[in-house]
């Protein structure tokens, strides 16, 4: 037998196979595969944004505050590395590592009673009377938390107006 005979024999296959070959369409990817891919992309975008923001926080440290007023009113110019402590007039100040994007998310750190209107006040958390918390809102709209531990019952500074 030669290849011509084989080609001829192929010519006599069933019509259903001939038709099927022209009508066949490869199945499309299931919807869940596309959904998972989309979610993965969204996750990567948010992760990348968070990492860029975090690295910017670290890179953009400008200077440590020299006094309490500068600490409170220095705005975005006064930043420290997360967890770094600074002592001013016998009071230890520590920048809380968390920076959160909404007042709602602040509740995880400083309790249910926090609202955005309560900025500029001291907060305490039940069971931790030696610590005061201050919420500051940066220009980027994110909230940052400052933790103040008052050494030796130092007087709690009055917040500037």
């Amino acid at each position: 037998m030669n290849n011509d005979n084989m080609y001829d024999a192929f010519g006599d296959i069933s019509s259903k196979h001939i038709e099927e070959a022209r009508d066949y369409r490869p199945p499309r990817s299931p919807i869940w595969v596309k959904l998972v891919a989309l979610l993965a992309c969204v996750f990567l975008i948010f992760t990348a944004r968070f990492m860029i923001q975090t690295s910017a926080d670290i890179r953009d440290i400008l200077h440590r505050p020299k006094n309490f007023r500068e600490l409170i009113l220095g705005g975005d110019q006064v930043m420290m590395y997360a967890g770094t402590k600074v002592m001013i007039d016998g009071v230890s100040y520590e920048y809380c590592p968390e920076a959160v994007t909404s007042a709602f998310k602040l509740r995880r750190f400083v309790g249910e009673y926090i609202t955005t209107n309560e900025q500029g006040k001291w907060y305490t958390i039940e069971g931790e009377p030696d610590y005061r918390w201050l919420i500051r809102k940066g220009k980027n709209g994110w909230y940052s938390l400052w933790v103040y531990s008052f050494v030796n019952q130092a007087e709690v500074p009055k917040l500037p107006d």
């Binding site: 030669n2 290849n3 084989m6 006599d12």
Partner: peptide
């Protein structure tokens, strides 16, 4: 041609219909 021997002597032994 991979499928066949190319030998003419077996050609008649296989009918086209049976092969199809």
């Amino acid at each position: 041609s991979f499928l066949v021997s190319g030998k003419e002597d077996v050609e008649q032994a296989v009918s086209r219909r049976e092969l199809a």
